[in-house]
């Protein structure tokens, strides 16, 4: 490969890498919890990526590669100097499926599928607050799977964990997320609608 070709493919790779900046930023934002740290983390990610772009194997997944760099930068760099309290344990936390809770709580069926109505009435803020309350590893696995759509294999590579760990972590994280959504929802003042239907549908 001559120098011109090499320069072209490098700038093409940089351009492609840049197209993933929204995904990297929203993940960084949810991982660090604020815009300033998220921007620092994303810049650090691109700095490292561009520095080691020659190590990237063309034809492999550039997006997953960038997320792996982001993850390493978060763990090795950001988290060490962060003063944000780090919650890592899910032990002793009650996990349950939102669905079971909705069914067990005997919500009044205002429609044929009342549980869908309840979900639709949960504000975005409650969903985000619930996600933010998860320990880092669990929040990240949800972000990678449910927001970014990575496969188990890709997540395992990004997080440097076995696929089995990804699956069990994801399973627990989603259940924990559902109980946290419910907590965030029931803790927030009811602001949905004026006829009180949403409040009535709220769970006890």
């Amino acid at each position: 490969m001559n120098q011109d070709q090499s320069a072209t493919s490098r700038s093409e790779l940089q351009e492609e890498a840049l197209s993933h900046i929204d995904a990297l930023y929203r993940t960084a934002y949810r991982m660090t919890g604020n815009a300033m740290d998220a921007e620092d983390l994303v810049q650090e990610t691109y700095l490292r990526a561009f520095r080691s772009l020659h190590q990237f194997r063309p034809g492999t997944n550039l997006r997953a590669w960038l997320f792996k760099i982001l993850t390493n930068a978060f763990i090795n760099d950001y988290r060490k100097r962060s003063r944000r309290p780090r919650s890592t344990s899910l032990d002793n936390v009650e996990d349950y499926y939102l669905y079971s809770h909705l069914i067990d709580s005997g919500i009044q069926p205002a429609s044929s599928r009342p549980e869908d109505e309840v979900l639709a009435n949960i504000p975005d803020e409650a969903v985000i607050a619930a996600l933010d309350s998860l320990p880092d590893e669990f929040r990240q696995v949800v972000l990678l799977a449910d927001v970014e759509g990575f496969s188990y294999r890709e997540i395992a590579d990004i997080m440097s964990t076995p696929v089995g760990t990804v699956m069990s972590r994801l399973h627990r994280a989603r259940r924990r997320l559902q109980s946290a959504i419910l907590q965030a929802y029931t803790a927030a003042p009811c602001s949905v609608g004026s006829d009180g239907d949403a409040c009535d549908a709220r769970l006890r």
Partner: peptide
């Protein structure tokens, strides 16, 4: 729902 909530954010 989790996906759509989080994808509303984009890089400044």
């Amino acid at each position: 729902r989790v996906g759509t909530c989080c994808r509303q954010l984009s890089a400044p």
